[in-house]
Amino acid sequence: MAHKAIYALMVAGLATSGNANAFSGNDLIKWLPEYEQGTSLNSGMYLGYVSGVADIGNNILFCAKSTVTRGQLAAIVGKYLRNNPESWQEEASTLVTAALEKAFPCPEAPAKNK
Results as ranks from 00 to 15, higher is better:
residue 10 M to T: 03
residue 54 A to W: 13
residue 30 K to E: 05
residue 1 M to N: 00
residue 17 S to M: 02
residue 66 S to R: 06
residue 33 P to R: 07
residue 43 S to I: 08
residue 44 G to F: 12
residue 92 A to S: 14
residue 111 A to V: 04
residue 75 A to D: 10
residue 29 I to C: 03
residue 37 Q to F: 10
residue 47 L to D: 10
residue 53 V to Y: 10
residue 33 P to Q: 05
residue 82 R to M: 15
residue 31 W to S: 03
residue 49 Y to L: 11
residue 99 A to I: 14
residue 40 S to R: 09
residue 51 S to D: 12
residue 93 S to N: 13
residue 98 A to L: 09
residue 12 A to R: 02
residue 76 I to F: 11
residue 13 G to W: 01
residue 86 E to S: 15
residue 25 G to T: 07
residue 41 L to G: 04
residue 67 T to N: 13
residue 6 I to M: 00
residue 52 G to P: 10
residue 22 A to G: 03
residue 92 A to N: 03
residue 97 T to G: 11
residue 40 S to F: 08
residue 103 A to I: 04
residue 106 C to F: 07
residue 113 N to D: 08
residue 19 N to G: 02
residue 108 E to R: 12
residue 35 Y to G: 07
residue 51 S to Y: 14
residue 102 K to D: 04
residue 62 F to A: 11
residue 92 A to R: 13
residue 73 L to Y: 10
residue 50 V to N: 09
residue 108 E to K: 05
residue 108 E to M: 08
residue 28 L to H: 01
residue 52 G to M: 13
residue 55 D to T: 14
residue 46 Y to D: 05
residue 33 P to C: 01
residue 110 P to C: 09
residue 78 G to L: 14
residue 111 A to G: 02
residue 60 I to W: 14
residue 98 A to E: 11
residue 1 M to H: 01
residue 98 A to R: 09
residue 69 T to Y: 10
residue 60 I to Y: 12
residue 103 A to W: 07
residue 93 S to G: 11
residue 37 Q to A: 15
residue 8 A to E: 02
residue 55 D to R: 15
residue 36 E to Q: 14
residue 104 F to Y: 15
residue 41 L to S: 03
residue 87 S to H: 14
residue 67 T to K: 09
residue 66 S to Y: 04
residue 7 Y to R: 01
residue 103 A to S: 11
residue 65 K to D: 10
residue 7 Y to L: 09
residue 13 G to Y: 01
residue 59 N to K: 08
